[in-house]
């Protein structure tokens, strides 16, 4: 009498003997432990594929970082000093209409400009000059007005700073500085 490999026997999920199983399960017997094993192995294959996708994503970021050319920032006039009072803000777009920026006159001789998009999820920030902060109403992030650095909330990075040049009464935007901290 040959001894069957116990791995080959079909084991119904409820564990009852074959004689107690419903007719449909007798007609379509499935090796449940093998089915479980195969489905978990397929899950492992899928996870390794996901792992490969993450490597592709990392490679794409690296390629963009090292082979993307540094942008040439145009020099753009954005307003006049005499048109902005102390404590006032001016919304402008630099270098194109897709990038809204905020110019703030923090004091008599202090002009600051930052990206208006919050670094969390790109909501427009509001300058509150009296509190010396930029406030994002979406998730209550706050940035320091003078430095653009994160004070509180979910934003991960400071606001990109717009470099300004003042010639006489005219204010020019000459570049943007991305920062990690």
């Amino acid at each position: 009498m040959s001894v069957r490999d116990p791995d080959e026997l079909s084991v119904p999920p409820d564990g009852r003997p074959a004689s107690e199983q419903p007719q449909w399960r007798k007609d379509f017997p499935i090796d449940w432990p093998q089915d479980t094993y195969i489905s978990r192995r397929e899950l492992g294959k899928f996870l390794v594929l996901t792992s490969f996708a993450f490597v592709v994503g990392q490679a794409w970021i690296w390629i963009k970082g090292w082979f993307g050319r540094a942008p040439k920032w145009p020099v753009t006039k954005i307003g006049r000093v005499s048109e902005i009072s102390v404590g006032e803000t001016l919304l402008f777009h630099y270098p194109d209409k897709l990038h809204p920026r905020l110019l703030v006159r923090a004091s008599e001789h202090e002009l600051l400009a930052y990206d208006q998009k919050c670094t969390h999820l790109s909501c427009p920030v509001i300058a509150e000059v009296d509190k010396s902060i930029f406030y994002c109403p979406c998730h209550h992030g706050t940035f320091d007005l003078k430095t653009g650095r994160v004070i509180s909330g979910p934003p991960p990075r400071p606001l990109p700073k717009v470099k300004l040049r003042v010639q006489g009464d005219e204010i020019f935007a000459v570049g943007v500085e991305d920062r990690m901290s």
């Binding site: 490679a59 690296w62 970082g65 090292w66 991305d178 920062r179 990690m180 901290s181």
Partner: peptide
């Protein structure tokens, strides 16, 4: 990358 760091990218890859 969005913050302008380029030094870490290769190591992360």
């Amino acid at each position: 990358y969005l913050g302008g760091e380029r030094d870490l990218l290769l190591a992360a890859l």
